[in-house]
């Protein structure tokens, strides 16, 4: 299988946003928090929390508007999720070659995986560093309080558990056993899946 190779290029501070993958000192990171500060009448400062795609550790760094960051040299390949071994998630390509990712690198994405889920795995210098899930995935609600019917004025959302005890906010009409669609880009409830 031929992977897609993205050419390295620079991002300027105005391109920075949550979810952007960047490279600092040869290490690929994803921006997990982004804030814009302007001290008094001064120049803008961009505060980013960067999460290493190698070990999942995070740190905060400030940038000025003319600072740049490298676009990481990432290769992307399609594979399927196989299984989990303690804190490792195992993916397999079409030749049954295995690739491993740590749970803290996957973040909330780990709860949205399901067996045989097709994902795009990103590589950095031959190492698997991150995945992109299908935009929408389906999950069964394992646990939620029964919703009060007809009450649309207040509290129109409630917590509901999917696998791994992961909680997601859903509308009141969602019941235990229902299947919902989740937007993996935001981790939010997207829709109810009606069974035919």
């Amino acid at each position: 299988m031929k992977g897609l190779v993205f050419m390295a290029a620079d991002y300027t501070a105005s391109d920075f946003r949550k979810g952007l993958r960047v490279e600092v000192d040869g290490v690929p990171y994803v921006i997990t928090e982004f804030n814009f500060v302007k001290p008094g009448k001064g120049a803008a400062i961009y505060t980013c929390r960067l999460k290493s795609l190698i070990d999942g550790n995070t740190y905060v760094r400030n940038f000025r508007s003319n600072d740049t960051l490298k676009k990481p040299d990432l290769e992307e390949r399609t594979m399927r999720f196989s299984h989990k071994e303690s804190d490792h998630f195992i993916f397999m390509d079409e030749n049954f070659e295995q690739f491993t990712l740590l749970d803290k690198v996957l973040g909330d994405n780990q709860y949205f995986l399901f067996e045989d889920c097709e994902v795009r795995v990103l590589y950095h210098n031959g190492q698997a560093v991150d995945i992109t899930l299908p935009t929408f995935i389906e999950k069964v609600i394992l646990e939620t309080e029964p919703g009060a019917r007809g009450n649309t004025a207040t509290n129109t959302l409630k917590p509901a558990k999917i696998n791994g005890d992961f909680e997601i906010m859903v509308p009141l009409f969602i019941n235990q056993g229902d299947t919902i669609k989740i937007d993996t880009r935001t981790g939010e409830y997207a829709d109810r899946v009606l069974k035919k």
Partner: peptide, 12 residues
């Protein structure tokens, strides 16, 4: 598009 249910809950 974001779920209109989530958007309504946010505004409320």
């Amino acid at each position: 598009m974001r779920s209109p249910h989530l958007e309504r809950a946010r505004l409320q």
